[in-house]
Design a protein around this nucleic acid. Structure first.
Length: 203
DNA sequence: GTTTAGATCAACT
DNA sequence: GTTGATCTAAACG
């Protein structure tokens, strides 16, 4: 029966995948950023995820890992890395990064940033610095030319902090935001205005 | 029914 | 002044 399968589906490998992304380098249109802050989204079981309702748009997150999911918010874009396992719809939002290459280009794209550490601070800012837009949706991050992900040594677990996700209304208490401790490029925590006492069941 | 564009406003710099 | 897994409404199919 299908319901039986659904009940057995694995859980939070997303959080492990999210941690693993810390320290890796995301390249976008001539600018490289070392990822310093991420958020895990559990997909079909996570009310805060866009994949919570499976539609043609969220279908990409149910596909193979290593693809880019981009969505638009407040006139900005946010970049997500699709993670496994398949049929889970999980993805990791890239919230912040330290620009390690293409600094001049990044500064050009983000003229309002007062200092370099603000260039990729915040999901919308990071995508702007990397020139990522809806055109990059569904990019293959393993061999993709415009946008791709470089392998790197994982960050030591003791230098990673965890906390509630930023700005989400539903499941606001799930601590699936991970960042490199004391890194100046990590964005500030802001709880959603209407983030009520969500049950956060089973997550 | 789903997806996109535009906008609000509290928390941040 | 800047930012954003929000919100609503218009534009799809």
């Amino acid at each position: 029966m299908e319901s039986l399968v659904l009940a057995m589906v694995s859980e939070p490998s997303v959080s492990a995948d999210a941690r693993a992304l810390l320290g890796t380098v995301l390249v976008g249109h001539g600018v490289s950023a070392r990822i310093t802050e991420v958020e895990a989204y559990g997909g079909r079981d996570d009310p805060a995820s866009h994949a919570y309702t499976r539609t043609p748009r969220s279908e990409i997150m149910y596909g193979p890992a290593g693809r880019l999911y981009v969505y638009r918010i407040h006139g900005h874009f946010c970049a997500n890395v699709v993670t496994g396992p398949r049929e889970q719809g999980s993805a990791v939002l890239i919230r912040a990064g330290e620009i390690v290459d293409g600094l001049d280009l990044a500064r050009l794209r983000r003229p309002t940033a007062k200092a370099d550490r603000f260039l990729g601070r915040g999901p919308g800012n990071l995508t702007r610095a990397l020139g990522i837009s809806m055109d990059d949706l569904d990019s293959d991050l393993d061999d993709g030319t415009p946008v791709c992900l470089l392998r790197s040594r994982p960050v030591a677990r003791r230098s990673v902090s965890a906390g509630p996700r930023v700005g989400v209304r539903l499941a606001a208490d799930v601590r699936w935001r991970f960042w490199i401790s004391d890194d100046p490029t990590v964005s500030a925590y802001r709880r959603h205005e209407r983030a009520g006492a969500s049950p956060a069941k089973g997550l």
